[in-house]
Amino acid sequence: MKTIINRFILSSLLLLGVAACSKDLPVDEDGLLITTRQECYVSNFELLGTDQQTIRVGNSYIDTVAQVAIAYVRFGADLTKLWPQVSLVEDAKLSPKIPTYDAWMDFSGSKMSVDFIEEDWVGGNATDQLSERIVGNPSAFPATAKKYTVVSGDRNIRKEYTFLIVERPLQQ
């Protein structure tokens, strides 16, 4: 009886060990895990000025179907020296990468001039009406708009996002 119990314990321990080892995931060239996740989208888009403070007004609008991210910025914010921050779904990567040091870049090519209509801005924030109208007309996107590709956790799915900036009109 005792030997049977011992054998049972030993074999279950072995089984556990095998199970633990089989979880090893490969690591890519940046030392990041290549996982099984297939989600592939941008979750937030942030722009920092040279003073490390955000220039956005309200939240960024992200359309994961049309693959467009729009940041609404304060009137007069300088767009030539910005530090972009793009948040992604878990395990995903951005290509090309945004450097972790001295990532200041000229984002003025992403600036879109929009003819605003009523109800586009409520309480100083852009409404979905405005965001949806912009996304619905891809031909109006500036050709110089910044584009980044999101790569999923399993590295098999790649989605190119267009990043746009819309300047809020001067608030009184």
């Binding site: 007069g76 001067l170 608030q171």
Partner: peptide, 21 residues
């Protein structure tokens, strides 16, 4: 400026006119 978008501002001679009403 009265607008919070501009508030306290300093300009060089080549500052864009749109941002210094």
């Amino acid at each position: 400026h009265a607008s919070a978008d501009l508030a306290h501002a300093i300009y060089a001679a080549d500052a864009p006119e749109a941002y210094r009403p």
